[in-house]
Design a protein around this nucleic acid. Structure first.
Length: 131
DNA sequence: ATGGGTCCTG
DNA sequence: CAGGACCCAT
């Protein structure tokens, strides 16, 4: 549906929209509890994909011997961005805000440093990065 | 008791 | 993405 597409584009701005924010953004729809929880679920799924990619590319950068996290950036031409873009903006008919690239770079660096420090041995090491 | 989250599956 | 099990906070 178009709501899914709208939600995905919204993800470029907020990773953890509260139910209130969702209510506001979808005020046109009669959000039943079921639909609301569905939207919540969508964002949970969006985050999963997002963080999985982040971890994947962070490990990849580490394996490729990237000196330090500061050199990690997320450009529109980068593979990471392309992967995320095709997932949330398949039609590619939306101008992804620059802010998203900055946020993505930040989380990518957080994964990178956490992994390089061996913090990924802690079962709940991702919790510090999430949110 | 409910609702938001994660993790794992299909 | 949807379902379900399970955790945590309200």
């Amino acid at each position: 549906t178009s709501h899914l597409k709208k939600a995905k584009l919204m993800f470029f701005y907020t990773r953890y929209p509260s139910s209130h924010v969702l209510k506001a953004c979808f005020h046109d729809v009669q959000l039943s509890r079921c639909v609301t929880s569905q939207l919540i679920k969508w964002f949970s799924n969006f985050r999963e994909f997002y963080y999985i990619q982040m971890e994947k590319f962070a490990r990849q950068a580490l394996a490729q011997g990237v000196a330090d996290a500061r050199s990690l950036a997320v450009e529109r031409e980068s593979q990471l961005f392309k992967t995320l873009n095709t997932h949330y903006n398949k039609a590619n008919d939306f101008q992804v805000p620059q802010r998203f690239l900055e946020v993505a770079a930040i989380t990518l660096r957080e994964f990178y440093s956490a992994i390089s420090k061996g913090e990924d041995r802690d079962p709940s090491w991702k919790k510090a990065i999430y949110k």
